[in-house]
Amino acid sequence: MDVVAKAWTWLATGSHWAGPDGVWHRLGQHLFLTFVCLAISCAVALPIAVALGHIGKGGALAVNISNAGRAVPTFAVLVLLLLSPLGTHGQWPTIIALVLFAIPPLLTNAYVGVSEADREVVEAARGMGMTGGQLIRRVELPLAFPLIMTGVRTAAVQVVATATLAALPGGGGLGRIITAGFRLTDTPQVVAGAVLVAALALVVEGVFVTLGLVLDPMRRRTGRRSTAARRPPTDQAPASPALTT
């Protein structure tokens, strides 16, 4: 348990937190990458998933993309993109890999949420003369909200994890503290970096759980807790875990 004490000492040393290789700078990089990539993937995946869910087509596509996302190793994609012509364009290989792996959970959850929104409510709304757009905005999206947020949360945790791995091919972020520790065979630094990364992932998960509860548009009306808890999909990944990495 000597390592634990040394890792603690590493974390408690002020100089490790400052400078371009310091924790604060790496954390900033990590958060920036996470935020940008999550925003891009949401902008790409959510409209498609909602549209597909609304017309009730493309279910096989959503499931297949989610399966493919699990089977393809993140590490392999990161390295392949680095060696591709894109590799010379700074952060882009990392950003593309992060977006690619954030899309499956977003797509699948939002699709399932919208396409399985209570049919009777949807029919009633249609009977009231709502147009397609109104139906999406005022019925399907509020009903699908918990699952959409589950997708966003899973994607966020996935992005944090993949951004950590991006340190192996030389990307920025907290993972660099771990990889630098490995290069220096400095186990306390490796452990300290790992603690920081794990803490960040848990904080991100916690923030999105809270956001999902606070922002739920149906919360005040029905006191709904969470759709995911009510209906565990046994043939899909459990609601929260990030799919890989």
């Binding site: 390592v3 634990v4 945790v157 944090v160 994890a161 950590t164 791995l165 340190a167 192996l168 993972g175 771990i178 520790g181 186990t187 490796v190 452990v191 970096g193 790992a194 603690v195 990364v197 794990a198 992932a201 848990l202 998960e205 929260s240 875990p241 990030a242 890989t244 990495t245």
Partner: peptide, 14 residues
């Protein structure tokens, strides 16, 4: 499950 793999392996290293 939330812990990223690189961190998980690093934590188990010692």
């Amino acid at each position: 499950y939330t812990v990223p793999s690189l961190a998980m392996f690093s934590l188990l290293l010692p």
